[in-house]
Design a protein around this nucleic acid. Sequence first.
DNA 1: CTCAGTGCAAAGGATTTGCATGCCG
DNA 2: CGGCATGCAAATCCTTTGCACTGAG
Lengths: 146, 146
Amino acid sequence: MVVAVEVHDIAAARLRDTDQRYTRNRRAIVTALAATDRPLTLPELLKANKGLPQSSAYRNLAVLEEAGVVRRVVSGGEFARYELAEDLSEHHHHFICSTCGAIEDFTLPADVEATVERALQRAARRTRFAGVHHQLDLVGLCANCQ
Amino acid sequence: MVVAVEVHDIAAARLRDTDQRYTRNRRAIVTALAATDRPLTLPELLKANKGLPQSSAYRNLAVLEEAGVVRRVVSGGEFARYELAEDLSEHHHHFICSTCGAIEDFTLPADVEATVERALQRAARRTRFAGVHHQLDLVGLCANCQ
DNA sequence: CTCAGTGCAAAGGATTTGCATGCCG
DNA sequence: CGGCATGCAAATCCTTTGCACTGAG
């Protein structure tokens, strides 16, 4: 896990590369995302950032995604979710509750990751897709919904 | 892969279990989904079924999903996608184009699946999630978008 | 000064729902 | 007959966008 201060430096640098600024709103969003252990919905981001208007949040998230600082996670729930880009946090997976949409992060042992990654790269070679990275989620029922 | 006629029988049975009927529209949707090798968007379903109104399609897909006949696949694109439930087709994964949202199915060697599944069940035990099944997708650029 | 960022309000667009009608059991 | 299914149209609601204003460089 990259330390928090570095995250801001990297975010600033990536934005600069596309001629954008690392403003207070954007820094606040990154801070909020760095502080949790699961992807946040927009309402959650707004709650963590009183005073941040929806439209600014959406717009800034789009910019941050474009710059490779955040990643949009489509979980199937009503809202999209956002998390820091993998190289700003660490490779991980999600538990997704199929009933309420709750999400939780988890990681796999390195050797399993390696096996999966190898098999996937092999599979990818048989198709016309390129620049592939994987996304492995678990779907089930969370404690509340069981 | 279960043969086509069985799919309809199973679909009918599952609907009956929830006091719903296997109508012409629903059968048409299932037929269309059984005929492709990738999840379909709603527009694609409508195109494959001239005369089927949007609202009926959405409503029937919801019913079919509820009955466990189809599965909604959230690919991140503009439209949701739908495919037959796994036990009506077979366990598979998706290549997803991060630019245009195109999707293609693929499968992994059985031994890799087994390894992954074992590791995931172990990981799942450490959380409060239950009834877990995995969902492994590859994200990259399709031939058109490279 | 300039131009990206901001915030409000309004628009967009996929999906859902109300309601009257049709049809299967 | 009774109740689910249908289809049209209208409503929802997450997300995007237009526009005037502010602020950093």
